[in-house]
Amino acid sequence: MIRDVLRKPWLWSFVAAFLVWLATMAFTGFKGGGELISAALTFATFFVIVGIGQMFVFTLGPGNVDLSIPATMTLAGSVAMKLMDTQDSMIVIGLLVALVIGVGVGIFNYILILGLRIPPIIATLSSSFVILSAAIAYGRGLRIKPPPLLAEFTTVQVAGIPVLAIAVVILAALMGVVLHRTIYGRSVTAIGQSIRAAGFAGVPVERIRFLTYVLSAVLAALCGYLFSGFSGGSSLSMGEQYLLASIAVVVIGGTSVAGGNGNLPGLWGAALFLFLVQSMLNTYQLSAGLRYLATGLIIIAVITAAGGQKTLR
């Protein structure tokens, strides 16, 4: 039992997150440890939301990646904020519109990928320029505040734990069930191992890939909506750090880059870890150059530690 747990690749991201937390605490003499954890939970929540979508895309196999996540966040966030115009009564409509934007982006991406046969990395990169231009044209770069109720929901805490984090833990658990126990999830992992074998086994390959890109875009849109509420409004640069973060949490979390092997618990460990590394290096007051260097080295160390999966034979 214990050995089974120790063999899980996602374990390492939690161990790493805990060690980084300890290292930070050692510096501050264990002051503010609780606050640091709630801050980490808050920011990790947003990483996890986009990470889930990116993880499903990665699990489709080599070459699959969604680079349009930041642009989708920005477009969905700014359209929803402008539409709601700070009125609490519009919250649900704003959410629905954000999700519809996600569906639209997913469809657009997939048209480029399947219809025009553009590799996903190029297709989603180029579509992100189109999406971002739409956001600029629509919002003119103005920052519009969220409805107070939405701001409240995205920041409220119960006993130091953000409510949103609890909701996203439940979301991640549900998506874990989707990945491992539904036909859709099984199909995604089949395609990720061998797209030809999946086709011959009767998996509707193109439909599953389509659904997965839509899922990723919808989650990005949801994240944009919530993050706009959390950070006091949408802005054109709000998605910036989510491009690398969405990829990093998937990889650090133990999902196989080669596809076919998704991993949900690891997303949380990795997201906490990413945030805690940043705050640790800030606490140590290192120069920017050293911070980047240390971040890179730490990520390499964690992936190496987690990556020792043995193959049979």
Binding site: A190, S194, R196, A197, A201, G202
Partner: peptide, 19 residues
């Protein structure tokens, strides 16, 4: 290349077409 799913158990390889 066209048959097995190498990461899966024998069981999952058998059931994929009957889920």
């Amino acid at each position: 290349t066209d048959g097995i799913f190498p990461l899966w158990s024998i069981e999952k390889n058998i059931t994929i077409a009957s889920l």
